[in-house]
C-alpha cells in the first residue's frame, strides 16, 4: 500500500477539474449542433448575446432542409447495365417516389457504409486467417506490401482511382466509394493480429477430424475471431461514413450523395442559413454517434488490440 502525499492528492484533484472542463469543451460542438438544429432564426442570428439554450424548440430548420431538394427515395439499378445501354445510363428495376433529398442521402450513406462493412469483414477475416495460419509461398512479401500500403495516404491514389472507376463505368455510383474502402488493407492487418492467437493444435485437431478448409474456417476460426470482426465492422462503418474526400470525388449527383456530402454541398451554396446547416449536421452525425455508442465496447477493445500487437 502506498500512502498518497498531500501533493499528489492535490494534483489529482486539479487534474480531474481540468479533465471535466476539457470534456465539456469536447462535447460542446455536438451540443451546439443539436441545439442549433432546433433554434429559431431569431435565436441563431442574435448578435447581442449568445443563446445557450433554444428559447423555443422549433422544427423549421428540418422543414427547410427537407424542402430544399428532392430525389427518388430509392433506385434499384441492374448492375453494369450501363455497359450495354446506348446512352450509357443505368437501367432501373424500380424507382421510388420523390422524397426529400436528405432522406435519400441518409439511405445512401447507410447502404454505402453497410456494404463496405460486410465486404471488408468477409474478405479481411479470410485473408487475415490465411496470413496468420497458412504457410503459403509469398506470404511474407504479401504481408510487407500490406503494411507499406497502410502507411500511404489514400488520397494520393485518387486520380488513378478516378480514371479506373470511370473506365469500369462505376464513377458516380456508391460502389466507387465502397470498393476502395474494402481494398484498404487495414482490415486484413487487424484480422491477422486476431488470428495469430488461434492455437495451432485446434486447427490440427479439426483437420485430423476430417474437416475441410472451409468448414474449419467457419466453425473453428470464425467464433474465435468474432471480437475482432466486431471491432473491424464498426471501424469500417464509421470510416466509410466519414470518408468525405472519397465521396466528394466519386459522387456527383443528388441521388448518389451521402448525407455528409449532401450537407457539404448545401454549405457551399447556403452558408448563411446556419439553422439549416445544423439540422443537416445533426442528421449526418446522430446516426453514426448512436452506432458508435452502442458498439463502443467492441470498438475500443478492437482498435487497442490491433495496435498493441502490431
Amino acid at each position: 500500500m502506498k500512502i498518497q502525499s498531500g501533493n499528489s492528492r492535490a494534483y489529482r484533484f486539479v487534474s480531474i477539474i481540468i479533465l471535466v472542463i476539457l470534456a465539456f469543451l469536447f462535447a460542446f460542438p455536438l451540443y451546439w449542433i443539436i441545439t442549433g438544429a432546433f433554434k429559431s432564426g431569431a435565436d441563431i442570428n442574435e448578435t447581442t448575446k449568445v443563446v445557450w439554450w433554444p428559447s423555443q424548440w422549433v422544427g423549421d430548420n428540418f422543414a427547410a432542409l427537407f424542402k430544399k431538394r428532392s430525389a427518388p427515395l430509392w433506385e434499384l439499378a441492374v448492375p453494369f447495365s450501363n455497359w450495354f445501354t446506348q446512352d450509357g445510363r443505368l437501367l432501373y428495376w424500380s424507382v421510388g417516389p420523390a422524397a426529400p433529398a436528405a432522406f435519400r442521402w441518409l439511405i445512401n450513406a447507410v447502404f454505402m457504409a453497410v456494404a463496405a462493412m460486410l465486404l471488408t469483414c468477409g474478405t479481411a477475416a479470410m485473408a487475415g486467417y490465411a496470413l496468420a495460419k497458412k504457410r503459403f509461398n509469398g506470404r511474407a512479401i504479401l504481408f510487407s506490401l500490406i503494411v507499406c500500403a497502410m502507411a500511404l495516404p489514400k488520397q494520393v491514389i485518387l486520380i488513378p482511382l478516378l480514371k479506373e472507376m470511370s473506365s469500369l463505368k462505376l464513377y458516380g455510383s456508391l460502389w466507387a466509394v465502397i470498393f476502395p474502402t474494402v481494398g484498404w488493407p487495414f482490415g486484413v492487418f487487424l484480422m491477422k493480429q486476431f488470428s495469430e492467437s488461434i492455437p495451432g493444435e485446434i486447427l490440427e485437431a479439426a483437420r485430423i477430424d476430417g474437416a475441410s478448409e472451409l468448414k474449419t474456417f467457419s466453425t473453428v476460426v470464425m467464433p474465435m475471431i468474432k471480437p475482432g470482426i466486431g471491432a473491424l465492422a464498426i471501424f469500417t462503418f464509421i470510416n466509410c461514413w466519414n470518408d468525405y474526400f472519397m465521396q466528394l470525388v466519386m459522387l456527383d449527383s443528388n441521388s448518389v450523395y451521402t448525407i455528409p456530402l449532401g450537407i457539404a454541398t448545401l454549405q457551399a451554396e447556403t452558408s448563411t442559413d446556419t439553422g439549416l446547416l445544423m439540422a443537416g449536421a445533426a442528421l449526418a452525425s446522430v446516426p453514426i454517434i448512436t452506432v458508435f455508442l452502442i458498439f463502443q465496447k467492441y470498438f475500443t477493445q478492437g482498435i487497442a488490440m490491433g495496435a498493441v500487437k502490431g
Binding site: 476539457l22 470534456a23 469536447f26 462535447a27 460542438p29 455536438l30 451546439w32 449542433i33 442549433g36 464509421i238 461514413w241 466519414n242 468525405y244 455528409p260 456530402l261 450537407i263 457539404a264 454549405q267 446547416l277 445544423m278 443537416g280 449536421a281 445533426a282 449526418a284 452525425s285 453514426i288 454517434i289 458508435f292 455508442l293 463502443q296 475500443t300
Partner: peptide, 18 residues
C-alpha cells in the same frame, strides 16, 4: 473516452459546419 472520441465519430463535415 467516449467524449474525447466524439469529434472523430461526429464526422469531418458536421464538425466543420459547426
Amino acid at each position: 473516452r467516449c467524449i474525447f472520441y466524439l469529434p472523430v465519430v461526429t464526422g469531418s463535415v458536421a464538425v466543420t459546419v459547426v
